[in-house]
Every structure is written in C-alpha cells, then in structure tokens.
Design a protein around this nucleic acid. Structure first.
Lengths: 130, 130
DNA sequence: GCGCTATAGTTGACTACGCAAGCAATAGTA
DNA sequence: TACTATTGCTTGCGTAGTCAACTATAGCGC
C-alpha cells in the first residue's frame, strides 16, 4: 500500500504524512519539532525527511520572527498539488483495505480501541507568537 | 517496550522473535526462508539478523541432508536460556501494556479483529524431508 | 543424460532512521 | 548584567533493513 503510494507518486509514507500535516496546519507551516512529534520521528529524522522534500520543491523553509531558533517547514504550491494528486488514490487504497475486511460497526470498534494506544492522538502545538 | 527488552537483555525485538520461533519449531531449528516468512523479513534481512545471533552464540547453522541449498538456523543452549531470561520480563511488559488499557472482552475483540489482517497468522511451513 | 526454470541463500550498494554531540538562541536565576 | 539550563535544529556515525545481482542446488520435460 505504501509501496503503491511511492510507485505512483514518488512519496514515501512519511513524505505523505508530512505534507498532510502541513496542509492541515495553520498557514501550511509547522515548526520542525512539532512535525517530528506528529510523525513519531526524532528531530534528526525530520531534518533528513525535509531535506528530501525541499530538494523536490514540495516544502520550503521559513524563519520565525519571534524565535530565531525555529525554522518552519512550509508547504509550497507544488507540495500542495502533489499531496492532492496522491491523496485521492491513497485514501481509496486505505479505505478499500479496511472495507474488504471489516464492517462499519467493526471499524468503529477498532477505532475506539486503538485510539487508546499512546501517540494515537494529536497534541496541541504552540504557535510561534507568544 | 522493545527498548526495554534491548536494554535488559541485549536483544532487539526481531532477535527475540527469531529465538522464539526457533524455540517453538521442531527440534529448535528452521530453514532461513521460513524464518523470514515468520518475521516479515526478506531473506537478506534474515541473513543479517542471524549473523548477529550467530556471533553471539545464540544460534548456529546446520545443513539439510536432503537439500543442500538449505541451511538451518538452530537454537543453541545459550540461545534457549537467553530467550528464557528475556521472555519473563518481556511477556510481563506486554501483558501490563494491554491490561492497563483494555478489559478481557476488549482484548478478545481486538484479537478477533486484528486477526483478519494479512500476515497475522502462521503459515504451514514444510519440513525438510519429503 | 541435458538444458531450463525455480528455490535457498549470500553479498554489495543504498536508504531511513536513531543517537550523541554540537551550535545558536532563548529563558530563568542570581 | 552575567551564568546556566533549556530548546530547536543540524551533522557524523552506526544500525537494520531493502533491492538487485549472484552462486549453488533441485527438479522438471525431453
């Protein structure tokens, strides 16, 4: 499934998730640390992941006026449209994977149970301005 | 949890699983291909995994009389006792991880649902002799 | 027997991470 | 103000794994 994503759109599953989180974030940008938290990666993992996405032009870096330590990862136009392309088929793949195996009720049960595992929810992430 | 396993016993989660599968196998030995299937690794992954376990003396290699292509991975005495050491605390860790979060009924549900995912069951693996 | 294909396993090159160490910038404290 | 601790990020190095290419053996059809 993630292999399919990569073949069809040249995105690893983490590339995809990174773009997705950025697209949902305020103004399409996130601090690298926060992104690391969402992706369950270490900061160095994020640095390397974004290296690739920057080279591909899907993401660019921006700085934060009020804290010069932070660099933002910002979704570019190209990144947004690449995500859009990929999400159609990916979401469909995920959906059918589950639909084949589970009924709606069972999906609810699963979601409810698995939701109790650690790291299954989103933390609130602070904005840059104080 | 797997970090704990590694800290306490010097075994990665895959080391542990490999020893476990061997301990359950007939005469404590398995063909490398079959082990690859159980661990969801490629054959080369298994080669590298067993390299480490062999160096540590937990596993040794044996050959198959009826098919000279196959090399067995065989659990050594040291491997069996290392597994025994590790399994006590590891099983306890896993148990408590789930007990904290789920009731018995919920665990049954989870097992039933997740059991439908691919690769969640054991294939039958052929023995060497025809 | 002879070729052909499939299977078991290993190896080299590569990737994706983590960890530890380090640099800047910030925040807390005296 | 100066000193220390903390935070955000990057970099060098090590590790676990994949893939593609390879060798060796097995088994088939003829």
């Amino acid at each position: 499934m993630s292999a399919q994503l990569e073949l069809d759109h040249g995105l690893t599953i983490n590339d995809y998730e990174a773009l997705l989180h950025l697209s949902r974030a305020d103004e399409g940008r996130m601090r690298r640390v926060d992104l690391a938290g969402m992706l369950l990666l270490t900061p160095s993992g994020v640095t390397r992941l974004l290296d690739g996405l920057e080279k591909a032009g899907l993401v660019e870096r921006g700085s934060c006026a009020s804290d010069r330590r932070v660099t933002y990862a910002i979704l570019t136009e190209a990144g947004a449209s690449r995500l859009k392309e990929a999400s159609g088929s990916h979401i469909e793949a995920v959906r059918s994977f589950f639909e084949v195996r589970f009924s709606d009720d069972e999906l609810d049960q699963l979601a409810q149970l698995l939701g109790r595992l650690p790291n299954s929810g989103a933390d609130s992430s602070e904005d840059c301005s104080p």
